[in-house]
Simulated scan of single mutants.
Amino acid sequence: MIENTKADRKYDRLTAFLRAYDLRVEVLAAGQMSADAQLFIARDPETGSARRVVLSMQGGTADADGIAAEVIFGGAVNPLLAALPERLVVDLEAGTAMRAIVDLFVAEACSPSCGGATVRSRLGEVIVVLAIRRAIDRGVGAGLLAGLAHPTLHRSLVAMHDDPGRAWTVAELAALAEMSRGHFIARFRDVVGQTPTAYLTAWRLTLGRQALLSDASVKTVAFRSGFGSAAAFSRAFSRQFGYAPKTVRENALEPRPA
């Protein structure tokens, strides 16, 4: 019997984004209940126990009873954040791993101890990943998130995310999704909102931008991203971001999503 077929294999739909963008969570002090907080743990006002997780990259998650935190995850250029619903709410169920992690997060936030800032930050990062994972598993959201939730399209998306420099053909991507070429193009466009080729180009440019911020040269980034030349990469980059690759650092000081 042949094992590890496409139908059986588990495709990691989040790791590529965690590699591309640094995820950081900074818990706000009790007196800093910022309206711009992106992560909020709502608590029962009587027992103090956590009731739900609210994630909104638009900000405005905080209210009086709970713990608020800022989430930094690549800003406006991270396509995963743009695909999230405006307000993602996860009700906490007893006995789940997420409930246990949130309870520990709340305990650390309410009773600070040695190394507490680091512990809270790491637990907050796990909570964000679990919330996004829940959204994907339940098919919440549209665009990229809907594509990642799709039973077969997600395979082609993961392939592009994991190996962006490969000279992917539409036929290869369609085969991963177990669709004909024409059906794949139409379905991908309907679900994700772009053609497969346009999405792959945008993803390559987004990763290229991150590499440029790490001091890689335009020529190196162009090669790694699957472009034929530095000139081709530069033209595509300028069209997508509105500025030349050589000015990426000056243009990287963007405001956080609001």
Rank of each mutant, 00 (worst) to 15 (best):
D162K: 09
L144R: 08
R52A: 10
L148T: 09
A135S: 05
L28E: 03
H150Y: 11
V77I: 15
V54H: 12
Q240G: 07
Q210D: 03
H183P: 04
H150C: 03
R204L: 07
I132P: 09
I185P: 02
M98G: 02
T47Q: 02
I132A: 11
L130V: 06
S34D: 13
D91Q: 01
R187P: 00
R134Y: 08
L81G: 10
D91K: 09
A62C: 13
E86W: 02
V170S: 00
A230F: 08
A177N: 02
A20R: 04
L145D: 06
A230Q: 01
R256E: 15
N4P: 12
L153T: 07
S238C: 00
D36A: 03
E46P: 00
Q38C: 02
N78W: 11
A135Y: 07
R134K: 07
A29Y: 00
L173A: 15
R9M: 10
Y243E: 10
L80A: 03
I127R: 00
I101Y: 10
R239Q: 01
F184P: 00
A186M: 10
V71A: 13
G116K: 07
P255F: 01
G242R: 01
R134D: 02
R189G: 04
G242T: 08
A68K: 13
V119Q: 03
T197S: 14
S49C: 04
R181G: 11
G165N: 03
S234G: 10
G48F: 01
G165R: 13
G60C: 11
A83K: 11
L28M: 10
V221D: 06
A117H: 03
V106M: 05
S111H: 12
F227R: 01
R235A: 14
A146R: 08
G139T: 03
F17M: 12
M179K: 12
L176F: 06
M33H: 06
G226P: 00
A232H: 13
G116E: 00
F223R: 15
D103G: 11
A37M: 01
A76E: 15
S56H: 12
A232L: 06
S234I: 10
A100H: 03
G31T: 07
F223H: 15
G147I: 02
T96I: 10
D65T: 15
V89K: 05
G208V: 00
G59H: 13
I132H: 02
A149W: 09
D8P: 12
A42E: 14
G182Q: 14
T201H: 09
G31M: 01
R166L: 15
R52P: 02
R24G: 01
D36Q: 09
N251C: 10
A107D: 12
S113V: 14
A252S: 13
F233Q: 07
A174G: 11
A107G: 02
L14K: 08
L213C: 03
L55R: 07
A29Q: 11
S113P: 01
V89H: 03
P255E: 05
D36C: 03
I101E: 07
G60N: 06
V128P: 04
M33I: 06
A202K: 15
F237Y: 12
P257E: 08
Y21H: 11
R189D: 13
G48R: 09
S56Q: 12
V54Y: 11
D63M: 09
F237G: 01
T152I: 04
R19G: 04
V129Q: 08
E70R: 15
T197N: 12
E250A: 05
